[in-house]
C-alpha cells in the first residue's frame, strides 16, 4: 500500500468532510479556514492529480449551476475505498506514535 504524505492526508480528510459539495474550492477553503494552512492552488491541484494516480481519489465532471463559474464544469471529488483505507492506516500509525507521549498526546 502506497503511503500518504501529511498534506495528502489533509486533502483526503477534507474531501470526506464535505457533505454535499466536495469540490476543489471547498477543500481549499476548508484547509485554509480549519487547518490553518496557506494552500496554493497549484499545490492542491498537483496533490489531487497525485492522489488520483495513487488510486485514493477520483472525480466526475459535473456541469455547474453557479453563475460565477462562467459555465465551466466542476469536478465532484470522492475518496475511493483505498483512499479511506490509507487515511485510516495513517491515523492508526499516528495514534500509535502519539501513544504514551503524555501531555503532548492530549494536545497540552
Amino acid at each position: 500500500m502506497a503511503k500518504v504524505g501529511e498534506f495528502e492526508l489533509l486533502v483526503i480528510l477534507s474531501i470526506l468532510r464535505q457533505d454535499d459539495q466536495p469540490y476543489a474550492n471547498r477543500v481549499r477553503q476548508d484547509l485554509e479556514q480549519n487547518a490553518g494552512r496557506r494552500v496554493t492552488r497549484g499545490a492542491l491541484y498537483r496533490t489531487l492529480s497525485r492522489l488520483r494516480d495513487k488510486g485514493y481519489v477520483d472525480w466526475q465532471m459535473e456541469a455547474s449551476e453557479i453563475p460565477e463559474r462562467g459555465g465551466h464544469p466542476m469536478r465532484r471529488l470522492n475518496v475511493t475505498k483505498a483512499g479511506t483505507a490509507a487515511a485510516q492506516a495513517s491515523r492508526t500509525v499516528l495514534l500509535d506514535f502519539f501513544e504514551g507521549l503524555g501531555p503532548l498526546a492530549d494536545g497540552g
Binding site: 469540490y23 476543489a24 474550492n25 492552488r41 491541484y45 465532471m61 455547474s64 453557479i66 460565477e68 463559474r69 462562467g70 465551466h72 464544469p73 466542476m74 469536478r75
Partner: peptide, 8 residues
C-alpha cells in the same frame, strides 16, 4: 474546472 474555480 480550474478556470471555473478561479472564476468563482
Amino acid at each position: 474546472t480550474i478556470l471555473g474555480d478561479l472564476a468563482e
